[in-house]
Design a protein around this nucleic acid. Structure first.
Length: 756
RNA sequence: GCGGGCGUGGCGGAACUGGUAGACGCGCUGGACUCAAAAUCCAGUUCUGGCGACAGAGUGCCGGUUCGAUUCCGGCCGCCCGCACCA
C-alpha cells in the first residue's frame, strides 16, 4: 500500500511534504482549530469513527469520551464547489465514484435567516440564525431547534439545570450505535421565544434538540413538521402540531392533512398568506427576495447561501508513524514555521511504544527546541500528518523523485501528469481520490504543478480476491489449507483434514484474518507459480468484479498452463525456423489457420486495451483449441511447407499474446521457439486486418424473429439474391408452414429476418 | 430513509451501438489410452419431449414498443454497494 510504504521509509519524501505543508500554510490553506474527537481515556489516544461505531471493543461507548482538541486542518472546503463541478470533466471515471464524491461534497442551496428573539434575562443573544433550503414552508413553522453544542444552548443552560443535564445526555449518546440507530427525536424547551420574520406577533418556541447538528449550516433550524419528516417526528413527540403549507399535485387543499408521514415534495403553496397559489420554486424565490430586502439590525434579515456537507480535512494524528507537522509553538511568537534549512523534521529514533498516549509528546527531548523567530524556549508540534497526506501527491513526486531542491519539477509534471489510467479499489472512491484531487488544486495554488488541476484522467476500480469460509461445528474458523473438499450428488462438502469432521461451507468474503479465509501467496507461488496465479485471477471474472479464489479454478488454470507449454512444444517441432515470413499464397487450410490467428490477435488487443482481461484469456483459450486441432489435422494429412511457415507465425503470436499476463511462461516458450532474444524485448505483433475479411459470410436467417437456418452467401451478395436464397431454405419453408412472406428484413452483414 | 448498481445454465462468466442467447473456462457424464489409477486426448453438457431428425420453452416476475428485446420503456420482486438525523 502506497501510503504505508512512503510513510515509513523516506525522510527525503517528508522533507518535501513538509515544505508543501508550509507553502499551504502561507497560502492560507491550513487552519488550526478546535474539534471534537472520540477519546480513549485509558490509552490517551484519539479513536477513529470506525473504532467507535463498528465495535472492536468500543461499541458500548463506555470507553469513549468526547474531547475537544486543537487540530490541524487542510481547507478542502475552499475547493468544495470546484471539486464538485470538475467531476464533469472526468468522463473516464466510473459514474459510481463521481456520484459518491458528489454526495460526499453534498451541495445545497438555501437561505441563512435570522430570527429575532424575545428579550430574556437568561441569555444575551437577540437573535438566532438558521439555515434552510425550504424557506417556502416558513408559514408552516412550529418551532426553532438548536444543536446541543450551540452557544445559545450553553448560555441558556447556565440558569437551567434541566437543560444542562439534557445537553450532557446528547453529548454522551452522540456516538453510540444505539443512538444513531434508534434516532429518537428528543428535545428540551428553553423557554425562549423567536419571532416569525413575516409576523412580529407570531412566536415560535426554541428547543434544544438532539437531531440538530452543530457542524452543518448554523447549528440551528426552523421546524416545519408538515414538510420534513424529522420535524414531524419531533412535533408529534412534543405536541407541537402541524400546518400543511404545500399541497401535493392532485390533492384538494381543503382536505389535505398530514398524519405520520410528512410531504417533502413540491406542490402549490397554501395557508401561506402572500405565497398562496405559488409553486414551491416561486415561493422559495419570493421569500428569499423579501427577506433579503428586509432589514433587521441594520443588515438584511436573510441571505442566500450555498452550503456543503464536506468538512475540512483534519490531518492531525497523535501517533509516531507519520510525517511530523513542521511548526514550532512559541509563547511569545505563536505558531512559527520550521525554517526551510531545518527540513526535514525527522522522527526521533529509539522510541518505546509501551506506554499510552502520543509517543512524540512523551519523548524527553525531541519537542524542546528554540523558537526560529526569537530564539527563546519553544515546543515542537507533536502531531504527525494523516498518512493520506503522503498518498495525496506521491504521483507528482514520482515524476521527478531525484529533485533534492523542490518537491516537483514543472517540466516533468507537464510531461507526465495527469495520470492516464489510475487503478485502485472502490474503497478509495471518496477519501484518497478526493484528497488527491484537493491536493493537486492546493499544489496548483502554491505553484507546484503548473496548470494541473486533476491528478487522474482515467480511473478504474478493480475488485478483490475473495474466498469462501469454513467453520467447524464448534464454531471455529478454519483455513482453506486445513480442509479437504469433495463433491457428490448432494453438492460440495468440506471436511477437516485433521480428524475428518465435516465443516460448514460459509459465505464468500473478503479475505481476512478473523474469518481465516486466506490463502498464502507464497503457498500459491510454490504450488503453481506466479504466472498461474495471475492468469487465474485475470481469467475468472471481469476485473471490476471480485474474483473468487478456488482450488478447483486454480488447478484448471494450472492444467491450461501445462497444455499451452505442450502446444508450443509441438508447434516448435512443426514450425519453420524463427524469422520465416508467412507464405504469399497459402493453401486454403493454411489460410484458415492464419485468419484465426489474426482474428484472435485483433480481439485480444482490443480486450486488453479495454481492460477486459477475462475475455482476452478466453480468446487465447480459443486460439489454443484451434491450433491444437490444426496440428491434429496436419499430423494426419501431412501438409506442406506453407503450413510450417504459418505455424511459425501462429506460435510467435500466441506466445506474445500471453506475455503480458504470463511473462515467465512466455519467455520459456519464446526460447523453446528458438528465439535468441526475449519476448519482452520484441515489439508487439501487428494484426493484418485484411486477412480476416472473408469472401463468403454465413448469415443467420430468422423466421418471425427466431433463428431457423444459416445462409452462406457471397460477401457482396445483393439484396434480391439473399432474399431468394433465404426463402428457398428448407427450414425456412418449414417454419413458414405455407404462410405467405409479408416482408424480409436484411441487415447487411448481420442477419436476415423473414416475416410471415 | 436517500442515492446508485445488479439479477443470464450446476458454477465463474460471454453476447460490440436492438440482430444467431449461453463464447471461454470450471464442474459433471460417456468414451479412448492403462493391469489399474493419475495425467492426457476425444465427444457431450440450458430445460422439457423424442432413439432420432426435430419441436416447444427460456436471460428474476408482469406488461409494453419492435420484423426482432438479455439489451429500450413502465410496474413489481430479490440481492449488493455507498451515504445516513445535512435542515
Amino acid at each position: 500500500d502506497w501510503s504505508r510504504e512512503i510513510a515509513t521509509c523516506d525522510p527525503a519524501y517528508y522533507k518535501h511534504q513538509q515544505k508543501m505543508f508550509l507553502d499551504f500554510l502561507d497560502a492560507g490553506l491550513v487552519v488550526r482549530k478546535k474539534s471534537k474527537v472520540n477519546w480513549d481515556p485509558l490509552d490517551f489516544t484519539v479513536l477513529s469513527n470506525e473504532q467507535v461505531i463498528d465495535g472492536r471493543g468500543w461499541r458500548s461507548g463506555a470507553l469513549v469520551e468526547q474531547r475537544e482538541l486543537t487540530q490541524w486542518f487542510f481547507k478542502i472546503t475552499d475547493f468544495a464547489g470546484d471539486l464538485l463541478r470538475s467531476l464533469d470533466d472526468l468522463p473516464r471515471w466510473p459514474e459510481k465514484v463521481r456520484l459518491m464524491q458528489a454526495n460526499w461534497i453534498g451541495r445545497s442551496e438555501g437561505l441563512a435567516l435570522r430570527f429575532e428573539l424575545d428579550q430574556a434575562p437568561q441569555v444575551s443573544a437577540r437573535e438566532v440564525e438558521v439555515y434552510t433550503t425550504r424557506q417556502d414552508t416558513l408559514f408552516g413553522a412550529k418551532f426553532l431547534a438548536i444543536a446541543a453544542d450551540h452557544p445559545l444552548a450553553a448560555e441558556a443552560a447556565r440558569s437551567d439545570p434541566g437543560l444542562a443535564r439534557f445537553i450532557a445526555q446528547c453529548w454522551q449518546g452522540g456516538t453510540s450505535v444505539a443512538a444513531i440507530e434508534t434516532a429518537e427525536k428528543k428535545g428540551y424547551d428553553t423557554g425562549l421565544k423567536a419571532r416569525h420574520p413575516f409576523d412580529p406577533e407570531w412566536r415560535l418556541p426554541v428547543y434544544v434538540a438532539n437531531f440538530v447538528l452543530m457542524d452543518y449550516g448554523t447549528g440551528a433550524i426552523f421546524g416545519c413538521p408538515a414538510h420534513d419528516q424529522r420535524d414531524l417526528d419531533f412535533a408529534n413527540a412534543y405536541g407541537l402540531g402541524n400546518t400543511p403549507v404545500v399541497c401535493p399535485p392532485g390533492e384538494d387543499p381543503a382536505t389535505f392533512r398530514i398524519g405520520a408521514v410528512a410531504y417533502e415534495g413540491d406542490g402549490v403553496l397554501i395557508n401561506s398568506r402572500f405565497l398562496d397559489g405559488m409553486t414551491t420554486q416561486a415561493a422559495k424565490e419570493e421569500v428569499a427576495r423579501r427577506l433579503e430586502a428586509k432589514s433587521f439590525g441594520n443588515r438584511p434579515q436573510a441571505r442566500r447561501e450555498v452550503h456543503y456537507r464536506l468538512r475540512d480535512w483534519g490531518i492531525s494524528r497523535q501517533r509516531y508513524w507519520g510525517c511530523p507537522i513542521p511548526v514550532i509553538h512559541c509563547e511569545a511568537c505563536g505558531v512559527v514555521p520550521v525554517l526551510a534549512r531545518d527540513l526535514p523534521v525527522e522522527l526521533p529514533r529509539g522510541m518505546s511504544f509501551d506506554e499510552p498516549g502520543n509517543p512524540l509528546d512523551r519523548h524527553p527531548t525531541w519537542k524542546h527546541v528554540p523558537c526560529p523567530a526569537c530564539g527563546g524556549q519553544a515546543l515542537r508540534e507533536t502531531d504527525t500528518m494523516d498518512t493520506f497526506v503522503d498518498s495525496s501527491w506521491y504521483f507528482a513526486r514520482f515524476t521527478d523523485p531525484w529533485n533534492e531542491a523542490a518537491p516537483t519539477t514543472a517540466k516533468w509534471i507537464e510531461k507526465w501528469l495527469p495520470v492516464d489510467q489510475y487503478i485502485g479499489g472502490i474503497e478509495h472512491a471518496i477519501l484518497h481520490l478526493l484528497y488527491a484531487r484537493f491536493f493537486t488544486r492546493a499544489m496548483q495554488a502554491t505553484g507546484h504543478v503548473g496548470a494541473l488541476t486533476e491528478p487522474f484522467a482515467g480511473l478504474f476500480t478493480q475488485g478483490m480476491v475473495v474466498h469462501e469460509t469454513y467453520r467447524s461445528k464448534a464454531g471455529e474458523w478454519l483455513l482453506p489449507s486445513e480442509i479437504r473438499l469433495e463433491t457428490d450428488d448432494s453438492g460440495r462438502h468440506a471436511y477437516k483434514l485433521d480428524g475428518g469432521e465435516e465443516v460448514t461451507i460459509g459465505a464468500i468474503e473478503k479475505m481476512s484474518k478473523s474469518r481465516r479465509n486466506t490463502v498464502d501467496p507464497d503457498d500459491i507461488i510454490s504450488a503453481y507459480g506466479a504466472d498461474t496465479a495471475r492468469w487465474f485471477v485475470l481469467s475468472d471474472s471481469p476485473p471490476e468484479r471480485d474474483v473468487i479464489w478456488t482450488e478447483e479454478g486454480v488447478q484448471g488454470t494450472a492444467k491450461f498452463v501445462q497444455r499451452l507449454w505442450r502446444l508450443v512444444g509441438e508447434l516448435a517441432r512443426l514450425a519453420a525456423p524463427a524469422g520465416t515470413l508467412p507464405p504469399r499464397n497459402p493453401s486454403p487450410a493454411a489460410m484458415e489457420i492464419r485468419r484465426a490467428v489474426h482474428m484472435s490477435l485483433i480481439k485480444v488487443v482490443d480486450d486488453i486495451e479495454r481492460l477486459r482481461f477475462n475475455r482476452a484469456v478466453a480468446q487465447v483459450h480459443d486460439l489454443a483449441n484451434k491450433l491444437s486441432a490444426a496440428i491434429g489435422a496436419v499430423e494426419t494429412t501431412n501438409t506442406g511447407a506453407d503450413i510450417r511457415a504459418i505455424f511459425r507465425e501462429a506460435a510467435d503470436i500466441l506466445v506474445m499474446m500471453i506475455s503480458p499476463m504470463m511473462p515467465h511462461l512466455a519467455e520459456e516458450c519464446w526460447a523453446a521457439l528458438d528465439h535468441a532474444d526475449l519476448a519482452a524485448e520484441t515489439s508487439w505483433p501487428v494484426a493484418d486486418r485484411g486477412l480476416v475479411v472473408e469472401d463468403t459470410i454465413a448469415l443467420p436467417v430468422q423466421v418471425n424473429g427466431r433463428k431457423r437456418a444459416d445462409l452462406v452467401v457471397a460477401r457482396d451478395a445483393g439484396r434480391a439474391a439473399i432474399e431468394a436464397a433465404a426463402i428457398a431454405l428448407e427450414p425456412v419453408r418449414r417454419a413458414l408452414d405455407g404462410r405467405p412472406v409479408k416482408k424480409i428484413i436484411i441487415v447487411p452483414q448481420r442477419i436476415v429476418n423473414v416475416v410471415g
